[in-house]
Design a protein around this nucleic acid. Structure first.
Lengths: 160, 160
DNA sequence: TGGAGAAGTTCCGAGTCAAGATGTTCTTAG
DNA sequence: CTAAGAACATCTTGACTCGGAACTTCTCCA
């Protein structure tokens, strides 16, 4: 009932606010829903993101730095996330035989299994959001977001 | 040229990634563009957001707590932002005659002037993004974002 | 061989979030 | 009228993130 008073004005005047604010707020809301679901699997949203990148990108064998840049994560943040995932046995950092500086993160079988389950659970959550729109609308939205997400310069401040 | 190597994979496999990640990444990109512009006016993106809320909402005379909840800002973060804006002479905290607990944030004339200029500059940036889409697409996107941004429960983790 | 520079890692400073404590001020039930 | 409870603004504390700067180990080019 407190929610009613607080949230209602958002709907009321959302139209006249920043495109930027709308984007952030939507990301905040959707992110909260995803986070609620993903924590049931014992990993964070970021952890799932990293795992997902590792399964869908295994041929590339990326370095840690490039992985962070690709995902939009700060290098120190990615480092601590990889530490957690490694400690949980979901990934391994394998030394590159050709370049002894790099230790490529590789997903383990357990990680792959967990990622698959988590992905399905998140897809279910995503379906909930999808249901609010028609297929044509979703196509537009997805294309627009992909387009906006694909800039060129590096980005300040992430919060992913 | 480093950007090419790093950013290109994003476009390549953006289609198969999280709706959630897409949203956050898009918000990150657009936010960066807005932030670049707004810092020329000596205020932060959050500062502009607060000022905007104060001009478009002056009849409501909100308390600081409700303002924070409406904008999705943490109360301590909003406090420090109000401190900055007050120090810059852009807002004032005026005591409420009816309730001596509350000190309502009110925008000053200088604040109103600055906000107007900043708003126009940001509208220009927004126009740049709009140009990538048709009017119909923008309508869909705006409606969708408004819809997503309008949830009911409180939200964890903001980064606005 | 020497030096520029990349990769991974750690450390530090600033900023944010979340939760809680405090003091002041309303409100309301007895 | 008074005492209990709630609301508001503020401050504090702890954990986390970001961004920059070091540092070590290693690669590659001249």
């Amino acid at each position: 009932m407190n929610d009613m008073e607080v949230q209602q004005p958002i709907a009321a005047c959302a139209e006249k606010w920043d495109f930027n604010w709308l984007l952030h707020r939507a990301a905040q809301r959707v992110g909260a829903a995803f986070a609620d679901e993903i924590t049931k699997f014992g990993i964070s949203l970021r952890g799932q993101l990293v795992l997902q990148a590792l399964v869908s990108d295994e041929e590339a064998a990326r370095t840690q730095l490039k992985l962070g840049a690709m995902l939009g994560l700060d290098k120190t943040t990615l480092m601590s996330e990889l530490d957690k995932l490694e400690r949980a046995g979901l990934i391994m950092r394998v030394p590159d035989p050709n370049d002894r500086r790099v230790r490529t993160p590789v997903i383990t079988d357990e990680g792959r299994e967990l990622q698959k389950q988590a992905r399905d659970a998140l897809a279910e959550v995503e379906r909930g959001f999808r249901a609010r729109f028609t297929d044509q609308e979703m196509a537009v939205i997805r294309r627009a977001l992909s387009d906006l997400a694909t800039g060129e310069g590096p980005v300040h401040g992430s919060c992913l």
